[in-house]
Simulated assay, not measured.
Amino acid sequence: MSATFNPGTAAALLADACRRGVQLRDLPADAKPATLACGYDVQDRFVAALGDPVVGWKLGVGSANAMRRASLARPLVGQVGASRCFASGDTVHVPAGAVATIEFEIAVRLARDVAPAHGELAPAALTELVQSAQVAFEVVLSRYEDRGAVGMPAFAGDNVGFHALVLGAQIDPASVEDVRASASVTLDGAASALPLDGDDAIYPLEALQSLLAHAAERGITLRKGTVVTTGTLTRPFDVAAGVHAVRATYAGGELVLNLAPQTGPG
């Protein structure tokens, strides 16, 4: 934790906004993290304040183009809370008036504990870390009105906008590129997203490598069975408040997410 920055104020504001289902314009200047390290200090306090056991990790802003635009050396990392994990067909509630972003992703589970260690792993070693893989939707909903305007450290403090993770069927980890190539996402029956490619694409093993680097810096041991959702395969799209059905089809499979307005505090 930074010796001069106190993350507690920002974390308390974000936790309060999360519980009440409201969004902030920004953090007060004296409570706003100026560096990614300070942003992750806020994130740790924010997640702890919610009291939701952490069962996994998410990667965001992970494509080469997205990182270039955000002046990042690697993707941002957020934490996945147990109460915010859902199954295909479940309903995820969204605060009234908020706009959610939908991403179709590949989530993996770790085959063993990984202690903090510096240095990159070879692709074969990364592959051996993957116990299983499955399709997923991530629902991104920042505690800020405009997550792009507040800056990357503040967005990291906001747990990288994590709202919910919908986990679907397992896939063969070797079939990720087939899933990517065949993926299509609809919103209320209308085509909404197709696969990303080139420098807009995200690759699960590269994302996993980035998580290992983050864990090494933060002194985190990644636990066996932990879920890691690695970043969107299809173009993210925004969904306005209301009742909606989101459906992804891929290589003969299907993943379903229902959205509905939140009727009380989150």
Rank of each mutant, 00 (worst) to 15 (best):
V166L: 05
A73V: 02
A12E: 14
V42Y: 00
R218Y: 08
A124S: 13
E105M: 03
T229E: 05
S71L: 13
H244T: 08
D172S: 09
F104G: 05
L208H: 04
P7A: 03
L126V: 07
L196H: 03
F162E: 00
G56R: 03
G56H: 06
C85P: 07
P153D: 01
D178L: 11
D238W: 14
T249F: 02
S63E: 01
D16I: 09
R247K: 14
N6Y: 03
A12L: 04
D16W: 06
C18L: 08
G8H: 09
T91C: 12
V140H: 11
L50V: 00
A122I: 03
A207E: 09
C18P: 02
A48R: 07
G252I: 15
Y40S: 05
G151M: 01
T221Y: 11
R69L: 14
A133Y: 08
S182F: 04
I202F: 01
L50D: 01
G81P: 06
D178H: 14
L59I: 11
A164V: 06
G266T: 15
D113W: 00
V77N: 05
H163T: 04
A193H: 06
A70F: 15
P116H: 02
F46L: 02
D200Q: 10
L59Y: 01
Q43M: 09
T226C: 14
P261M: 02
L76I: 12
A100C: 09
A34P: 04
A115P: 02
E206H: 13
F137V: 14
R84T: 12
P204I: 11
L110D: 00
Q170M: 12
D30I: 02
I106F: 00
V185Q: 09
K58S: 08
Q79I: 00
R235I: 04
R74H: 15
G8C: 06
R69Q: 14
F162M: 02
A115K: 06
L255H: 06
L255G: 08
T230Y: 05
V92F: 03
L259W: 11
R143Q: 06
R74K: 14
P95D: 06
R20S: 10
E217L: 15
